[in-house]
Computed example of a mutant assay.
Amino acid sequence: MISVQPISSKHDWNLFFEFPNTLYRDNPCYVPTLLLDERWNFNPRKNPAFEYCETIAFLAKQDGKVVGRVAALINHKLNKAKEQAYMRFTRYDVIDDIEVSRLLFAAVFAWGREKGMDTIIGPIGFSDLDKQGLLVDGFDQMGMFITLYNHPYYHDHLTQLGFAKDIDWVEYKVFVPKKPDPRIERICKIAQKRHGYRLLSFSKKKEVIPYAHQMFHMYNESFAKLYGFCPLSDGQIDMAIKQFFSLVSLDYIFVVVDALQSVIGFGIMVPSLSKPLRASRGRIFPLGFLHILKALKTHEVLDMYLIAVKPEYFGRGVNAIIMHEGIKRAIANGVLYAETGPELENNDNVQTQWKSFHTEQHKRRRCYIRPLTEESVQ
């Protein structure tokens, strides 16, 4: 018999966080989430998103064994701004049994209706920095630290439960050229000379911090019109700075300022943490940190975390400055390619950045939508 219950104990939270590692134990493409980050994300005392979000999480068990999990959340700030009654689902993992998915989502739908919601979307999390989008193509590709991995049958389960596509994200491998692109270098030099833009250099991480709040406030401006985006609060920005800058390498932090020293663009890349996180099963201690340190020093793959430009500076060479320097450092460090994070399929501003490179669009992921009608989960 399958039972589904909301999580209320520390023991069940541990089961919730550990279940994907068990489910994907033998899958070479699965990359665990950093457990420390996950515990922060679902801790109301740690995650400032709880100032305007409420959540519930469920475990499905069969004969005492975990066979599925899902969390649901309501972003009241975004709902108010958009005059909508949407809820989200996230952290959906399940064995290949439609009955488990049916019971999990029956619990989610009931909670959402009780809260007055009329529509559910997902998988999508607390913010745009959270993992989002169900993998629908690229199951044979190694996952990333910042993305989800799932079995192909998840799509079948959601479709049977009445979910439909709302929007897709695509991901690319961007291969590092043997030498810098002359066209990008030319645009970079013109932008710096004509407008007085400057790429900052840092010798210590603490030197980045004074600019970090400007960076993420600018990120709020740059991403404001994208799907599902909710501006980060000051508390969330503080949290993002702690999480991002604990793992980044100074080689791959690019901050562009104008003549008045205001941040107008930035890029953050990180040596791929996929293999070290697999080796440590998402744990920092006792040896996980050593795996991460090794990856930060010696690497052939980069993960592109963020690139953002202040909206009024689009098309004025800021991207070229970031990309030119990124190419030079990647070449110097022997990097073979960089992987983009999920990019909305209709985001032409991002897609056109890669037209000068050899690329491979190797993954696609999807956000689903379903009305919360009173009909049963078929």
Score class of each variant (00 low, 15 high):
D96F: 01
N47I: 02
V108L: 04
N75R: 12
S356F: 13
C367M: 14
I184G: 07
P271M: 09
A71D: 03
D63V: 00
L148P: 05
V67I: 13
L200E: 15
A308T: 06
I264D: 09
I95T: 08
D156W: 01
L336M: 09
C29M: 06
I327G: 03
H362I: 05
T373P: 00
S101V: 01
L372N: 10
P231G: 10
T352M: 12
E360I: 05
H362R: 09
Q141I: 11
N14P: 05
I187L: 14
G341L: 12
I98T: 11
I74P: 06
V94A: 13
A279G: 01
Y172W: 04
Q361S: 07
F216R: 09
P152T: 08
K225C: 10
P48V: 02
T147M: 15
A110P: 02
R113T: 02
W40P: 01
L306S: 09
G162W: 04
D168L: 06
T340V: 08
Q261P: 02
K61Y: 05
D166A: 15
Q351K: 14
G228E: 08
F16V: 12
P231W: 06
R365Y: 01
K61N: 07
E99V: 05
F16Y: 14
A71V: 03
L135Q: 05
D137E: 12
H155E: 10
A107C: 05
L199S: 13
D130R: 10
A81Q: 14
M269P: 04
I253L: 15
G138C: 04
A72Q: 10
G64R: 12
S262H: 10
D348K: 08
E345H: 08
N347T: 08
I292Y: 11
V318I: 15
A60F: 03
E374C: 02
I253S: 11
S201L: 04
K205Y: 05
L35P: 00
I184C: 04
R278A: 08
S3W: 02
F266R: 09
